[in-house]
Computed example of a mutant assay.
Amino acid sequence: MDPEQQPPYGAQEPHAVAATSEPKPAKSAKKHTDASFGLKDFALWCGIPILIMVLLRVFVFGMYLIPSSSMEDTIMPGDRVITSQLTPRFGKINRGDIVVFKDPSDWLPAEKTTEGTDYLIKRVIGLPGDVVECAGNGAPVTINGVVIDEQSYIKPGVEPSAFAFNVTVTEGHLFVMGDNRANSADSRYHKNDAEKGLVPIADVKGVAFLRYWPLNRIGWLSAHHDVFAHVPEPKTIPSA
């Protein structure tokens, strides 16, 4: 090599620079980064949705298997329903709502259920202060003196009530009845128990709004609020 073409002292020829570069640590770092992203992706796409579903199940929605025929034909034995747990806690229960509630005063032995359970399901007919009555023998139910037409949800061929009753709903309670009045041990049958046949609102676990099983019966559960549209509000609410 011509001395004039030699690189100055301390300089390196181009091929020497390439030889001294170290790409391997960078490649190793990239692999480590990819592994970290994989764990984050798993937590993001799997862990968080599962956590959300668990929280919704515990605090927002309830799921129940219906073991009896007291709500036929709206809900059949073996149907599974979803309830809103927020309504009784933060909202207002209305006439016509289908509610799941704890056994208020040993009602369950009178219910013909297909399996053991601690809860019952009925339709709300009377709110606090309402006067709910019926003359029996095919006569319609009246609330605060107004006749209600229940044909949209009562089981076909079944009377509103086979016997007469007259109940005033006390503060903090509900008067409930099954849609299958011929096979529902509801508020009418328990006038002599500790709660006088009424359901404490505090015992309501949720308002049913969806039937999700069986697949051929999936659908919304109607509260039929229109049936009660002309019922006047009670003038007074007696204390329990």
Rank of each mutant, 00 (worst) to 15 (best):
A43Q: 13
L51P: 02
V176A: 02
F101D: 08
G206W: 04
V147T: 15
G219H: 02
E4N: 05
K40H: 05
E150L: 05
N94R: 15
L39V: 06
I48L: 15
I201P: 00
T87V: 15
G91E: 10
C134H: 00
P109G: 11
F42L: 14
I93R: 03
D79M: 11
A110I: 01
T74N: 15
V100Q: 01
K122M: 11
A16S: 10
P3Y: 07
G47S: 09
A164C: 06
V147C: 01
V204L: 14
K102D: 09
S28I: 08
K191I: 06
M1E: 08
T113R: 14
S187Y: 01
D2V: 05
F42Y: 15
V167H: 05
G136L: 07
V54G: 03
P23F: 12
V100H: 09
A162L: 12
I75D: 01
F42I: 11
Q6D: 10
K24C: 00
W45C: 10
Y212F: 10
A11I: 02
I121C: 04
V99H: 04
A16E: 15
E233F: 01
V124I: 12
S21Q: 12
V99M: 07
C134D: 09
N192V: 07
D186L: 13
D34I: 14
H190A: 13
G10K: 06
L44A: 13
Y189G: 13
